[in-house]
């Protein structure tokens, strides 16, 4: 009988150990930055971009972690806002695409909206269900690219947009 218990105790502890090794916890985080480009802007997709500096310490409130702790990062939602007071509105564009690029991770398409309907100055995009972007957070910086598809030529000297990317970090425990 003791043998029986000992055997199951051993099996249980091995399973528990394995489960502990593989277990992860999800944390919400979000990054926000201004992307911009100089004009003029011709009809068709025009790229606004900015560099984002990764700072893991400030990404998740009350949670300290390192790049090694990151198992997976997925995109939850992406919102773009054209600054208040800008004469241009979202009805000036056919569609918008958001991508990430960096020296050490392959360019990844994280969100789109095509077609853009309505007006105003804020948009919530359809975010990619499959994009895995953890590699971007394992380096110092990456680039966020926003391709606005202009309906018509615009001679404005520059354009800015504010991008907010809500993320889910899966961290090893």
């Amino acid at each position: 009988m003791m043998k029986f218990f000992r055997f199951y105790a051993l099996v249980f502890s091995v399973v528990a150990l394995l489960a502990a090794c593989g277990s992860t916890e999800d944390f919400d985080a979000s990054i926000q930055l201004d992307v911009s480009a100089e004009g003029p802007f011709f009809s068709g997709p025009n790229t606004l971009q900015a560099e984002y500096t990764v700072n893991l310490k400030s990404l998740i409130a009350n949670k300290e972690f390192t790049a090694n702790d990151i198992k997976e990062v997925k995109v939850k939602s992406v919102t773009i806002k054209i600054p208040e007071g800008d004469a241009i509105g979202i009805d000036s564009f056919n569609n918008v695409v958001v991508q990430l690029a960096s020296d050490n991770a392959p360019m990844t398409n994280i969100a789109i909206l095509n077609p853009i309907n309505g007006n105003g100055n804020e948009l919530t995009l359809t975010s990619s269900a499959d994009a895995e972007i953890e590699d971007f957070f394992k380096q110092e910086k990456f680039i966020v690219l926003v391709d606005w598809d202009f309906k018509e030529d615009s001679m404005r000297p520059e354009m800015h947009s504010n991008v907010k990317i809500d993320l889910v970090f899966k961290l090893k425990q």
């Binding site: 480009a37 100089e38 004009g39 011709f42 068709g44 025009n46 790229t47 910086k141």
Partner: peptide, 12 residues
């Protein structure tokens, strides 16, 4: 200058 930007695009 690691954020080398693309030129503006005149698709026509």
């Amino acid at each position: 200058d690691t954020t080398t930007a693309e030129d503006e695009e005149d698709y026509s």
